[in-house]
Design a binder for these strands. Structure first.
Lengths: 314, 314
DNA sequence: AGGCCGCGTGCTCATGTGAGCAATCTTCGT
DNA sequence: ACGAAGATTGCTCACATGAGCACGCGGCCT
C-alpha cells in the first residue's frame, strides 16, 4: 500500500467507524468510488490500523480458545480478555468468574465434582451463582486442613460450591503434606479419609488450579513448606504445584519423596479424568500453566489472554 | 438491558468482531434470531462494550474536530488521536505532522505565510514535505534572535518552510524581548525591521504555537526572561505566551510594560487575521490552549485529543 | 376482570456491503 | 517502442444488515 492510500484508508476508517458514514458517503467526501472505499477499509483492517476491542469483564477471546483447543489438544478452553484490566487481581477475578460460568453451563452437569482448593478456587466459589446445579456433590481431592491465617478456606470453598449446587460436600480431613511418609500412609488408611479418596477417584469432573513455585505459595503460608523447601524444589526444576504436588516443565514430579508425603489424588489419576478443568491465571503461573497443559493434566483450561499467548507462541 | 442480554451481547460481539461470523450464523450458534443478534450488537455498541480505535500516527478524531468547530467558533480544527501513543513527545510529533498536513492542503495556498517560532514549529517545518507549495513566502511575525544553545532555530524554521514551499523567507532581525521600551521602539523603526513587520501584517495566513508559563519556556532558555520573571507573570495570572506575549486565561495581556518591550505583531493584530493556525499540544499547554481559543487568537486549532477534551468539557 | 400501555419480538423491505469479473492502466523486460 | 504480466479500477450481483412496522405478551390501573 503506498503512502497516499495509507492516509486515505485512515481517513476512510475514521469516517466509517467514528462518524458512521456509509461507504458511499465516504466516497463522496474523499472523491473516490465507494468500491475503493471498501477496499481501503479492508486494507486498514489488514494492516492493523483498526483495533476492535470488547470491553467487558466477561469478554473472551474465541480465537485463542480455538487455537488452544486445536493446537494443545484440549477438549475445551476459555480465555478471558485482558482489555480494560487495571491490575492483576481484576484478571484473576475474571478468570475465576469464567471458570464459574463454565462449570455452571457444563453438560452434562457433574453429579460428583472433585475439587482442589486455593485462592483461585475460593474466588470461583464466590462467583458461582446459587442454584448453578440441582444436585452436584463436591468432594475434596487433596489434603487441606489449613494452618494459615484464614483457616478453613479450603473447606469453605467446597461447602460453598456444594451448597450453591444443591449437593453435599465431602471434606478430606487431612493436612496437605505430612512430615513422615508413614503418617501419610496411616492417614490414607483411615476409614473416613479412604472413603473420601475413593469418592474423589470416581468423580465425574474435576476442578483445580495450580500454584507457582515461589515464596508466596499457599503451602508456605500454611506452613507445610518452608521458603527453603521451595528454593530446593525450584533448583530441581519445579515450576509450580498441582494438588500440592510440585512438577517440572514437563509435568513430572520433581521430588518423589515429597510427593509420597502429599495426601490426595495422584497426578496420574488426575490425567485419566474425562473432565479436568484447570483455572490458571496470571504472569507468575505461566510456567505451571504450560506444564499442566503440556503434560495432559487438564482437558479444559480456563485462563487469561496473556497466558494463552504464552502457551501458544512461547 | 438485563444481565442475560448483556452477556449475550458480549458473546455476539465476540463472534461478530473477532470471529467474523454473520449475524445469521451468530443467531444459530446462540439460539436466537438474527434480528435479535443485530439488536444485541447495537446495544453492545451503545453501552460502550465495543471500542473501535484507529491506530495510526495520522489518525484524527473527527467528532472532536466537529465539536470544536461548532462549539468554540473555529473555522477549522484538527485533533490527532492519542491511541497508541507511548510518550508526550510522540504526541507533539503527531500534532506537528498534522499542522504540516493542514498547511500543505490549505486552499487557497497562502502567498505569504506569517510564522512564529519554537519547538513545535521547528517540528512542523521538519514534517512538511518538499514542494508543499509552489510559491509561498514566509515572514517572521515576532522577534527571535535566539541566544539559546541551539541558535538560529527560529531562522531555520522559517527558511526551511519557505524553501520547501518554493518561496523566500523574510527574517525579523530582532531579539524577542528588549530590556528597554525605547530600544524596542528604535528597533521597530529600523528600515529592515519595519519592512518585515509590514509584510507580516499583510500575510495571507499565520501559523504559530503557544508556550506554557513555566520555567522550561524557550524565553527562559533564551535568556529573555528569568525564572523569577515567569513566577511574577504566573502570579499575575499568566497561563502562557503567544508570540512572546504573556496572556491570562481570558487572553488578555498580563503585563503591558513587558508587552511594550516585545517585538512583533500585537495579539490584536493577530486576532484580525482571516487564517490564523495555532498548533498547541500537550498537557502543560492546556491552559494556554483554552486562552488562545477562548479569546479568538486563532481561527484554526491543531491539537491533541486530550487537550481537545479539556477545551470542550472543562 | 377488562382494557390500556409499553416493551420485546419476528417480520418486510430498502439499503449497505463484499466477492468476483472484465476492462483498463502500469510497469517492466526485450 | 512494443507487448506481456500484473496491478488497479469500476462494475454486477448476491448476500448481509438496519429501519420501520405489526403483532403479541405482560404489567398495571381502574
Amino acid at each position: 500500500m503506498d503512502a497516499v492510500d495509507e492516509l486515505l484508508s485512515i481517513r476512510a476508517a475514521e469516517l466509517y467507524y467514528e462518524e458512521n458514514l456509509t461507504q458511499e458517503e465516504i466516497g463522496r467526501s474523499l472523491q473516490i468510488t465507494r468500491w475503493k472505499v471498501g477496499r481501503l477499509l479492508t486494507q486498514a483492517k489488514e494492516e492493523g490500523f483498526v483495533r476492535i476491542e470488547i470491553l467487558h469483564s466477561r469478554a473472551r477471546r474465541p480465537q485463542l480458545e480455538r487455537r488452544l483447543r486445536d493446537e494443545r489438544e484440549l477438549t475445551d478452553a476459555v480465555v478471558v480478555s485482558r482489555a480494560g484490566v487495571r491490575n492483576e487481581d481484576e484478571l484473576q477475578q475474571r478468570v475465576a468468574q469464567a471458570a464459574a460460568d463454565y462449570l455452571a453451563t457444563l453438560h452434562p452437569r457433574p453429579r460428583v465434582l472433585g475439587l482442589s482448593w486455593g485462592r483461585t478456587l475460593a474466588d470461583v466459589a464466590h462467583h458461582l451463582r446459587d442454584g448453578w446445579s440441582t444436585a452436584t456433590d463436591v468432594v475434596q481431592i487433596n489434603g487441606g486442613v489449613s494452618m494459615s491465617q484464614r483457616p478453613g478456606t479450603a473447606a469453605a470453598t467446597a461447602v460453598s460450591i456444594a451448597q450453591k449446587g444443591g449437593g453435599a460436600a465431602a471434606l478430606l480431613p487431612s493436612p496437605a503434606i505430612l512430615e513422615q511418609r508413614a503418617t501419610k500412609e496411616a492417614i490414607e488408611a483411615d476409614r473416613v479419609v479412604a472413603r473420601v479418596l475413593g469418592a474423589a477417584r470416581s468423580a465425574d469432573a474435576y476442578l483445580f488450579s495450580a500454584g507457582a513455585a515461589d515464596h508466596r505459595s499457599v503451602h508456605v503460608d500454611s506452613g507445610y513448606l518452608s521458603p527453603a523447601d521451595i528454593d530446593r524444589l525450584v533448583a530441581s526444576g519445579a515450576v509450580g504445584d498441582v494438588l500440592g504436588r510440585y512438577i517440572d516443565a514437563d509435568g513430572r514430579i520433581v521430588d518423589r519423596e515429597l510427593d509420597a508425603r502429599t495426601v490426595g489424588l495422584s497426578l496420574d489419576e488426575l490425567r485419566r479424568a474425562d473432565v479436568a478443568i484447570a483455572a490458571i491465571a496470571g504472569e507468575a503461573k505461566r510456567a505451571v500453566a504450560a506444564a499442566v497443559v503440556g503434560s495432559g493434566l487438564c482437558t479444559v483450561l480456563v485462563t487469561d489472554e496473556s497466558t494463552a499467548h504464552h502457551l501458544l507462541d512461547g
